[in-house]
């Protein structure tokens, strides 16, 4: 008996989002099949891989990471170097120094740093929030203003602060935003509804559905991403159709496996390799669940995940 394929395609699709300045923009989303189901229908755009840098610079205690960023000392140099990582589709900036629980750098200064990074980067830019709704509400509009013409994605528009961020970033300065909810499928939809009700059109926002490292309550995140994707496609729910961006690096490098020293746990091997493996396993699972983009810190993780995507799409 011959095999007769029965493709499972959907009448609806994930919305496309393009970001980055003219001539250097990338587009993602657009697919009408489940993640990597390229046998059902061609995948419109492959999932993207972002490389994350921080205004505090790379962790130079990790030998391979230090070697990659060797000679790159200013933030501009670090940004330019990150863009050379094989497989990186976009640059992701974490403005750690602006965190009110840390150095609490003024928003104007942080926005100026974002501008420096954007100017030094040949890749489209995404800026992450500082995980503080009040600071993000102040910081992200300033970043939006500083990045005029860069068509960047500004993450972390949450239920508490989305209005100001949406107005400043999208309406006033033509940037894109990320609607962030914390592993809550109903809130994810609600936030998109609220953003749409402000007159922000599809194509101008992505979803950030939460983050977690593999092994750390990760199944909640994976099932949330998966359920969002299935409802977006099978129920043609346009309030769930923006592409999903999942920042993986922060969690992957904050868990015990990536932090404890080799001296304390010799049987676990080198710390850097463990961190890379946490990033890779988490990112691969996010992509399989339906993330349209992941953000990683280590160039080795970026390269591996980019290769995985290239093989599957």
């Amino acid at each position: 008996m011959t095999f007769k394929p029965d493709p499972q395609t959907f009448a609806s699709s994930i919305k496309e989002v393009s970001f980055g300045p003219e001539g250097a923009a990338v587009t993602f989303g657009g697919s009408n099949v489940l993640p990597f189901y390229a046998f059902d229908a061609p995948i419109a755009h492959k999932p993207l891989v972002g490389i994350e840098i921080s205004d505090k610079g790379p962790d130079r205690e990790l030998p391979a990471l230090a070697a990659f960023y060797d000679g790159a000392n200013t933030l501009s140099e670090i940004a330019a170097r990150a863009c050379t990582a094989p497989g990186a589709d976009f640059l992701s900036l974490k403005l750690e120094g602006a965190d009110p629980n840390g150095d609490n750098m003024p928003s104007d200064e942080a926005a100026a740093l974002a501008k420096e990074v954007a100017d030094a980067s040949v890749l489209p830019l995404l800026v992450q929030g500082v995980d503080n709704v009040d600071k993000d509400a102040e910081l992200l509009p300033k970043v939006a203003e500083a990045l005029q013409g860069k068509n960047a994605i500004l993450m972390s528009a949450k239920e508490e602060n989305y209005k100001g961020i949406a107005v400043a970033a999208v309406t006033a300065y033509g940037q894109k935003i990320g609607a962030e909810s914390a592993v809550d499928i109903n809130l994810a939809k609600q936030l998109n509804v609220l953003i749409a009700q402000m007159g922000i059109q599809q194509g101008n926002y992505v979803m950030h559905l939460g983050n977690s490292a593999a092994g750390y309550g990760f199944e909640y995140l994976a099932s949330t991403i998966e359920r969002v994707k299935i409802a977006a496609l099978s129920q043609n729910d346009d309030a769930l159709q923006p592409p999903a961006v999942t920042p993986v690096a922060g969690d992957a490098w904050s868990v015990k496996e990536s932090l404890v020293s080799e001296a304390d746990f010799p049987e676990w091997g080198p710390r850097e390799q463990r961190g890379i493996e946490m990033e890779i396993s988490t990112a691969a699972a996010c992509l399989a669940s339906g993330s349209d983009a992941v953000i990683l810190r280590h160039p080795s993780s970026v390269e591996t995940i980019a290769k995985l995507i290239a093989e599957l799409v």
Binding site: I185, N186, K189, Q190, V193, L194, A231, D237, A239, L240
Partner: peptide
């Protein structure tokens, strides 16, 4: 369970 709940579902 044919459409996902959100607080504003009656406005959609």
């Amino acid at each position: 369970n044919r459409t996902l709940y959100a607080d504003s579902y009656l406005e959609l």
